[in-house]
Each structure stands twice: as C-alpha cells, then as structure tokens.
Amino acid sequence: MIEVLTPLRTIEIERARMPEARAILPDGDTCVVIDDYGRFFTVSLSTGDVVRVRSRSAGSLGSVAPDGRLMATSARAFGQYHVQIWDLARWTVTMELPGHAHPIQAVSAAGRIVVTAAADGTRVWDLDDGSCRFTLPGTEEVLWVAVSPDQRHVATMSWDRSVVLWDPCTGAPIRTLRAADPRVPPLRSPANDNGIWIRTVLMDSVRGRLLVADGQLCAGDLNGQRPLTSWGAIPWSPWAAWVPEKDILHTCLAALNPVDGIVAVDYGGRAYLLDQGGQPLAVMGPEPGPGQVPVRTMTFAPNGRLVCSRAGTFAPVEVWPAVSELMG
C-alpha cells in the first residue's frame, strides 16, 4: 500500500465558510464548491483559480448530469423546500421542483431523474416536464438516496440502516438489501451531533454493485444475489474509531471512481483508496491523532485524482494524486 502524506495542491477559497467540494465537471478541471452561506464557487484544480458564481440558498447537491450541463441542489424559500436545476453553461436556474414541506435531507440525480428525500417522503422527479412521478411508499425516514448512472435503480437508506432498492419507472420496491437494525438509535439529521456525521450510498451500474458507508463499508449486488456484507480491509487505528466526547463513527464518507471502480473511504481523516475487491491500494493524509480533522466531502476527478474538503471553517480544497500516478 502506497502512503501519501501531503496533497498535490491545496486551494484556499477566500471568505468561504465551511467550503465543500461537491462535484467535478466533465472538463476534468472545474470543481463546484458550496459554502455554508449557500454560495457557489468554481475552482480550477490545475491552476487554483477561484471564481464566485452565484449566491443562493443551497443545501444538498445532486449529481451532475452525464453530459455536464445540469446540476440539482436543494433550497428553501418562503417556508417551502424545493430543488433547483442549474444550467452549468450559464449558471442559471432553469427549473424548480417544489413540493416538500420539510427540509430536504438528500438529493441524487442521473440523466433526467432526480430523487429527493425529506420527512414527508422520498420523491422521484422527471426533468422532461418537471413533474413528480410518485412518492416512494413508506420512505418518510429516508436520509440518504442514490440513483444509478444508468437510471435503472434508486437506492434509499433510512436512519435504521435499512437499504431498499426501487424501480424509478414504477415506484415499486425491487428488494430489501438490508433490513432495519433495531440497535441503531434515531438520528435527527445526517449531521446529528450525537450520532453518525454522514452516511454514503454509492451505485455502480458498470459493475452491478451498491456500496454503503455507515460506520463500516458494505457492498452488495444490484441483482440481489449477494446481500450487503462488510467490505474492505482498512488497518484499524485507535484514533480513528471515535472522536473524543462525541459518539461519532468514521468510515461513513465514501466516493466512487466510475472509470476504474476504485473507492475512496475516509477513516480518521485519512482517505483510503480501495480496489474492486476492497483491498487498500493507497492512503492519503497523515497518521490519525489528536486534533485530526475528518474529511467533509470527497469526489473523484475524471483523471482519477481525489478532491477533498475538510470540516474546517476556512479549510482549503485538497487535490490528491490518482492511483495511476502513484503506480508509475
């Protein structure tokens, strides 16, 4: 396993409070960053140039469409919660999907499908006409969603760790990949101070698998032949398991490189890169220890480089090398 202690580049975003690197555009160089004030920035990963684009009340960010033209973000206005669809060429809102009376906990998008999760249900939207196809039944406690890149599956995960696969064309459940765990206490939100910071659901259509990071990393097949089971072999560290005075589990944040199937997982503020079998290839960042700041967001650039932001008020965006660069 290759160890990398410092990133290739750190990019400071002036006056951006709690910046989060959320997505890389298809040009491979432009990173979309959102801060706590709902402001958008675009960052050049090669030059470090930063441009403030718009000021909007942005929350959860959905996937950038495969053609790189559209992006979905959640927002609030006049007591209602809705999703804005952005045209990335002009940085304008081209469509708004209204309807939620509660905060939107998660957004995921692929192609012409957007899925939103809130306390009044998980909804599947059609961008062709801006309509809600349906509300998935019994999904009032869903906090994490994912749409597969081929638009054939929707996955939901609730606070009780249950994971269900849905048909986005009919709204019917296909199968339950993991049943509810009665030992898990209720969580108020994905950023609950008394529980898990964040959980991740990843869909890999090319390899027919689904990955879940919620304290441990689990993987299963989209066809249901292999249930969700513990996956990966990250070396255990006493500093990474718990945060002092807070019952916060790590291994909850993950990202997938769809090109080669490599998965990145945060563990104690270090990003482990795992191969398709879950074995570590490389680790990015210093050894865990007192004061180590966990990774807040992570995403892969098309060239395989990992882009991270940490949970600091004015933390920089970090660019880490790709496995192909490390392997020579």
Rank of each mutant, 00 (worst) to 15 (best):
I2P: 00
T10M: 14
R15I: 03
R17C: 04
F40G: 01
S55C: 10
P66I: 06
G68T: 11
L70D: 08
A72D: 01
Q80L: 13
Y81E: 04
Q84Y: 10
W86Y: 02
W86H: 03
W91C: 10
M95H: 12
E96K: 14
L97F: 06
I104M: 15
S108M: 14
A110Q: 06
I113M: 14
V114A: 15
D126R: 15
L127R: 00
R133A: 05
F134A: 07
P137Q: 07
E141P: 06
E141Y: 07
S148G: 08
R152L: 09
W159D: 00
D160G: 00
T170G: 06
G171M: 06
T176E: 14
D181K: 09
R183K: 13
N194Y: 15
I198A: 01
R199K: 09
D204G: 05
R207H: 13
R207F: 13
R207T: 02
L211I: 06
Q216V: 02
A219P: 10
A219S: 15
D221L: 09
R226G: 03
E245G: 07
C252Y: 03
A255R: 10
L256E: 04
G261D: 02
L273W: 00
L281Q: 04
V283C: 03
P288Q: 06
P290A: 14
R296H: 08
M298A: 08
S309D: 13
W320T: 07
